[in-house]
């Protein structure tokens, strides 16, 4: 066992150390919208990307850039990809996050049997370890290449907490939600239709504190299934709504909706106290992106 472990170290595609497990747990939890989800993890010299999909209509990606790790040794040819159960992976990582203790963990791939190996490395006399069995990933079932709808972008940035609240409120009409952007007056409208209808409007000039940025040169309107729209904000970690940076929504070609959140992966509060400026390193951000396909009958208007 020991000799194979040492052998694995020499040949591991990835060996990285992480000092804020909770931040990564938060980032990965934000794409956890149901109980059983298969995730694909792709490793590259730039970092780790985790991808989940649902029904060919929704895809989410979490980008963990190499700057988030305190050590990142990558030595693979090509980009290794493997599948894991998202829930299991997050629950397992969560076990490593002991509140009130600094937790540095080592992540290694592949193990002797293609496992993903994790272990805590900050204490000599107590060690937490995990071996997660990986799968050969399915090919991505749909082409998620996001292309701009035209020469100028159709996008808006809204405070994350407000976006989550609006989407939560649209639950009762259920079914589907129409998102309309119009340049004059510049505004965004969410309209839920189902058992009844509910309309939530963000006026750019009236709500500059909520709607932070707005780009639209022609009116556009698409419908999205409520359950997919809801998945984009349902598990946002509390630090996203608390920091309330803003989430960016972009409508691409064919009405594909892209929702982007920034999740802080700053180190635990205890270590922050030593930082007199209170300044967070900008690189300690995990990027989370969702791609939602529009409903088929929701053609451009």
């Amino acid at each position: 066992m020991s000799s194979s472990a040492i052998g694995a170290e020499e040949t591991a595609d990835l060996l990285c150390h992480l000092d804020n497990v909770q931040g990564i747990v938060d980032a990965l939890s934000s794409v956890r919208w149901k109980r059983h989800q298969d995730a694909v993890i792709e490793v590259s010299e730039h970092g780790i990307v985790l991808i989940v999909e649902d029904s060919g209509c929704l895809q989410a990606k979490v980008y963990l850039q190499r700057e988030l790790f305190i050590r990142y040794d990558y030595s693979a040819q090509g980009r290794p990809r493997f599948g894991v159960g998202l829930g299991l992976f997050v629950d397992c990582l969560n076990t490593f996050s002991v509140p009130g203790h600094s937790n540095t963990i080592e992540i290694r791939y592949p193990g002797p049997d293609m496992q993903l190996l994790l272990k805590s490395i900050d204490s000599l006399d107590a060690c937490i370890y995990a071996e997660i069995r990986t799968r050969i990933p399915d090919t991505i079932s749909w082409d998620y290449d996001f292309e701009p709808a035209g020469s100028s972008p159709l996008s808006f940035t809204v405070k994350s907490a407000a976006l989550k609240e609006a989407i939560d409120d649209l639950e009762w009409p259920g079914s589907s939600v129409q998102i309309t952007l119009q340049p004059a007056p510049p505004s965004v409208m969410f309209k839920g239709e189902g058992h009844g209808d509910l309309q939530i409007e963000f006026m750019y000039y009236a709500n500059t504190d909520l709607l932070i940025a707005f780009h639209c040169d022609h009116a556009v309107s698409h419908r999205y299934k409520y359950k997919f729209l809801r998945a984009t904000t349902s598990n946002l970690p509390s630090n996203v709504t608390k920091d309330n940076r803003g989430s960016k929504l972009t409508i691409g070609r064919g009405g594909m909706l892209k929702v982007q959140h920034l999740v802080s992966v700053a180190r635990s509060a205890a270590t922050h106290q030593y930082n007199p400026s209170g300044y967070q390193q900008p690189s300690r951000i995990a990027y989370v992106e969702f791609f939602v396909k529009p409903e088929v009958d929701g053609d451009d208007t």
Binding site: L124, C127, I128, Y129, E131, I132, R133
Partner: peptide, 27 residues
Amino acid sequence: LITLGAEFRKLVVLGERAEAPREDRSL
């Protein structure tokens, strides 16, 4: 699907005790 464990070492022992073999350390 998963093996998840924790090992706490060098705890105080009451009752029967024994010295750990040196070669087991790296296992």
